[in-house]
């Protein structure tokens, strides 16, 4: 079984936020308003955070999404298993089972889980903009980056239809796809031939907050020499 992972080279990343927009559209994450944003209700599955990654110089803007922990602190605490580590190693959300207790949001040390404070709304005709592959979350449930899991399902269908095995290149999340600086690669971290595992071997590689024992599958490559 593949162990899907994402490697982000902070030395290449230009903090352009194309990934942020791509994810919003791909995953039907609703827009905010200034009021929502000012009260801490802006929803985004991926965002820039400023993290000190070097010994000098300003903090590095770092794209942050669910780190898809192999030992996720968020799933342990869920009373209904509405969030769980699935067989593919992706930490998934079952929206229909989530009771909205927000225990997982508080247990995630990366603060990447989001809560639907109200029913998401798109003004007409913007409803047509929504991706039919991804369900629209009702109010009251928790959501987060899924590694574009629907793309994996599509890629697998495609590979099966073509009668071949799933290759690394078949499955590319929306954020990785758009990255203009080619700062992200996605693939099987256990496959020694994948680009992702090669990048993850870099001496610059670090897993953010791995000291907490979360074993993230998002790997960052440190900025600088």
């Amino acid at each position: 079984m593949a162990r899907w992972g994402l490697v982000i080279d902070l030395d290449r990343c230009t903090a352009c936020q194309a990934c942020v927009v791509a994810c919003k559209h791909e995953n039907n994450v609703p827009f905010s308003t200034p009021a929502a944003s000012n009260s801490g209700r802006l929803l985004t599955w991926i965002q820039l955070v400023a993290v000190e990654t070097r010994s000098h110089g300003p903090a590095t803007p770092m794209p942050l999404m669910c780190q898809q922990c192999d030992r996720p602190p968020c799933t342990d605490v869920c009373p209904t298993s509405a969030t769980y580590l699935n067989a593919e190693g992706i930490v998934a959300q079952i929206y229909a089972r989530c009771i909205g207790c927000r225990y997982c949001t508080n247990a995630c040390p990366y603060s990447v889980k989001l809560f639907n404070w109200q029913t998401p709304a798109w003004p007409e005709p913007m409803t047509a903009l929504r991706n039919p592959d991804v369900s629209v979350r009702p109010k009251g449930v928790v959501e987060k980056c899924t590694f574009c899991h629907h793309r994996l399902m599509r890629a697998r269908e495609q590979a099966r239809a073509e009668g071949r095995d799933l290759a690394n290149e078949d499955y590319v999340p929306a954020c990785v796809q758009t990255c203009p600086a080619e700062a992200m690669v996605f693939g099987d971290l256990d496959d020694p031939h994948s680009e992702a595992s090669a990048w993850a071997e870099s001496p610059r590689a670090f897993r953010w907050m791995e000291e907490l024992g979360t074993r993230p599958k998002v790997v960052y490559l440190r900025e600088g020499e």
């Binding site: 009373p79 009251g140 449930v141």
Partner: peptide, 20 residues
């Protein structure tokens, strides 16, 4: 709860590792 209507899920799909 965001979804009090689903409070019963705790009984229907209990996850015993959750302190809740």
């Amino acid at each position: 709860l965001g979804r009090p209507d689903r409070a019963l899920d705790v009984v229907l799909h209990p996850h015993f590792r959750s302190p809740l």
